[in-house]
C-alpha cells in the first residue's frame, strides 16, 4: 500500500470507494439532511472540515498509542477526539458566523455520531497512511460525501413535484435512488489507475 499515489488516494476516496455509496458510511445524514440542496451543501462542508481535523488528530493519536503500546485505547480515544472536535467547530462557527450556525442547527452536533468520520479515522489507520496521505484521504472522503449528499438533494428536490405512489414516499424512494446512484458510481472503478 506504500506506493499509492496521492491522486489515486483522492480519486479512490471520493469516487471509486465513495464513503456513502460504496461503504455505507454516513447514511443517517445522507437520508436525513438530503431534503434541501442548500442544507446539503453546508452539511457537506462542515463534515469535510471535521474530517480533515479529526484525520490529523487520529494520525497523531495513533502514533502516540503505538509509542505507549496501548492500541486497545484506539477506539475510545478516537471517539473522544471526534466529539471534542465537533464541539470546537460548533463554538467556532457560533462565534464567527451566527447565520451559518442557525442554518446548520441540530445537524452540527450530530456530526459526532456520523460514522463516516470515525470510519475515516479507522480506515486510514488500517491502511497505514502517513500524514500527507491521511490528509488527502480525508479531503477526498469529505468531497465524496458532499458530492453524494448534493446529488441526492438535487434529485429529491425534483422528486417533490413527481407523482410517486404514497407507499414509496419518503425513505423507500430515497433508498431506491441511492441504489441507482451507487450503481452509477461503480462506473468510476478503474479510474485514477
Amino acid at each position: 500500500m506504500e506506493n499509492e499515489s496521492l491522486w489515486y488516494i483522492f480519486i479512490n476516496a471520493s469516487l471509486i470507494s465513495n464513503f456513502v455509496l460504496a461503504y455505507f458510511l454516513g447514511i443517517c445524514p445522507f437520508l436525513g439532511v438530503s431534503g434541501k440542496l442548500d442544507t446539503a451543501t453546508k452539511m457537506g462542508g462542515a463534515v469535510t472540515f471535521v474530517m480533515l481535523i479529526s484525520s490529523m488528530c487520529a494520525y497523531g493519536i495513533n502514533a502516540l498509542l503505538i509509542a505507549i503500546n496501548a492500541p486497545f485505547l484506539q477506539l475510545i480515544s478516537y471517539i473522544v477526539v471526534i466529539a471534542s472536535t465537533v464541539q470546537l467547530v460548533e463554538m467556532f462557527v457560533k462565534k464567527m458566523s451566527p447565520a451559518l450556525f442557525r442554518a446548520l442547527g441540530i445537524f452540527l452536533p450530530l456530526i459526532t455520531t456520523n460514522c463516516a468520520i470515525l470510519g475515516l479515522a479507522l480506515f486510514q489507520t488500517n491502511k497505514g497512511y502517513g500524514f500527507i496521505e491521511s490528509l488527502v484521504y480525508a479531503l477526498g472522503a469529505g468531497i465524496g460525501f458532499t458530492l453524494a449528499l448534493v446529488l441526492m438533494a438535487g434529485i429529491r428536490q425534483r422528486l417533490d413535484f413527481a407523482d410517486s405512489p404514497k407507499v414509496v414516499k419518503g425513505t423507500v424512494i430515497t433508498l431506491l435512488i441511492a441504489g441507482i446512484l451507487s450503481l452509477s458510481f461503480m462506473g468510476f472503478s478503474g479510474l485514477g489507475g
Binding site: 455509496l21 460504496a22 461503504y23 455505507f24 404514497k166 407507499v167 414509496v168 425513505t171 423507500v172 424512494i173 433508498l175 431506491l176 441511492a178 441504489g179 441507482i180 451507487s182 450503481l183 461503480m186
Partner: peptide
C-alpha cells in the same frame, strides 16, 4: 451483493412494511 443491492433490498423490505401498514 454489490453495495447497490443493499440499498435495493432495504428499500424493498421497507416497502413491504409500508404496504402492510397501509
Amino acid at each position: 451483493i454489490l453495495p447497490a443491492g443493499g440499498f435495493f433490498t432495504l428499500a424493498l423490505w421497507l416497502l413491504l412494511f409500508n404496504i402492510l401498514k397501509e
